[in-house]
């Protein structure tokens, strides 16, 4: 169980105080899939950076029973090391922590999972955008994370590639059940992936909706469309949207 209590982050830019995150209370159940939506600057990336330990909160704290969780992070850009092969990139976070043989075995397994076994010796500049995203995903999965954080990982990809990767991510999550926090501004993606969609604005969580649809989900399904519409209404601040369930 991961608990965020009164989490806040503020910093000063040119003598002006900016509140990036304010009073966020959130409980992430083990194995849950949470998607955070909101316009740019709403604090969703800050929330992710705090969870990743890349920055420290100014108020509040993150509690996790059993110390800091093992975190895997997938960024908006693949962020691959151009000097390492695909296998080298995937195993990057394991070097020095486990034996060479174990690195090799785990890298192979992660590459098989994302369907890139044949490209283990390729360099990042030889990969397509979708392949590079898969390598970024494999680099996070190989760490066997308890908490998997994804910051708009598929935003730069074409629709077909994105749809394929969304399916793969769902399958991987169903198989391994890490706790996932996924940030996006694509509402359809949110409804496709999430157990629960959080709506952020002005550094606060201002709405949440459960997604009770069975998987695999169909974006043309009537309930899917209705839920998508409801969340879009939440985002545009239109009146008449149902109140957030407690």
């Amino acid at each position: 169980m991961l608990e965020l209590r009164g989490l806040g982050k503020r910093y000063t830019v040119h003598d002006r105080e900016v509140v990036a995150l304010a009073d966020v209370d959130l409980v992430l159940k083990p194995g849950s899939f949470t998607v955070v939506v909101g316009r740019s600057g709403c604090g969703k990336s800050t929330l992710l950076r705090l969870l990743a330990g890349l920055t420290l909160p100014t108020t509040g704290a993150i509690h996790h029973n059993g110390g800091r969780p093992k975190v895997g992070c997938v960024f908006q850009e693949p962020r691959l090391m151009p000097w390492l092969t695909v296998a080298g990139n995937v195993g990057f976070g394991l070097v020095g922590k486990v034996t060479k043989a174990e690195i090799e075995a785990r890298v192979e397994a992660a590459l098989a999972l994302v369907g890139l076994s044949d490209f283990r010796n390729a360099y990042p500049d030889q990969l397509s955008g979708g392949m590079a995203s898969r390598v970024g995903l494999a680099r996070a999965l190989v760490l066997e994370p308890e908490l998997l954080l994804l910051d708009e990982p598929f935003a730069a990809l074409d629709a077909f590639t994105r749809r394929g990767l969304q399916g793969e991510l769902t399958d991987i999550w169903l198989a391994r059940r890490p706790t996932v926090v996924f940030v996006t501004h694509d509402v359809e993606e949110a409804v496709l992936l999430a157990d629960e969609v959080l709506h952020m604005d002005g550094g606060r969580i201002i709405g949440r909706r459960e997604v009770p649809l069975p998987r695999p989900r169909d974006a043309t399904d009537r309930e899917f469309v209705a839920l998508r519409r409801a969340i879009l209404d939440d985002l545009s601040g239109r009146a008449g949207s149902s109140p957030p369930p407690a």
Partner: peptide, 27 residues
């Protein structure tokens, strides 16, 4: 700095970030 962040998320120490990210990036 985005590559350095990858190292930090992986829990690398300062020296390892220098050796495994900054040095090859500067090459």
């Amino acid at each position: 700095p985005k590559l350095v962040e990858v190292g930090r998320v992986c829990g690398l120490r300062q020296w390892d970030i220098l050796r495994r990210i900054v040095l090859p990036a500067a090459l």
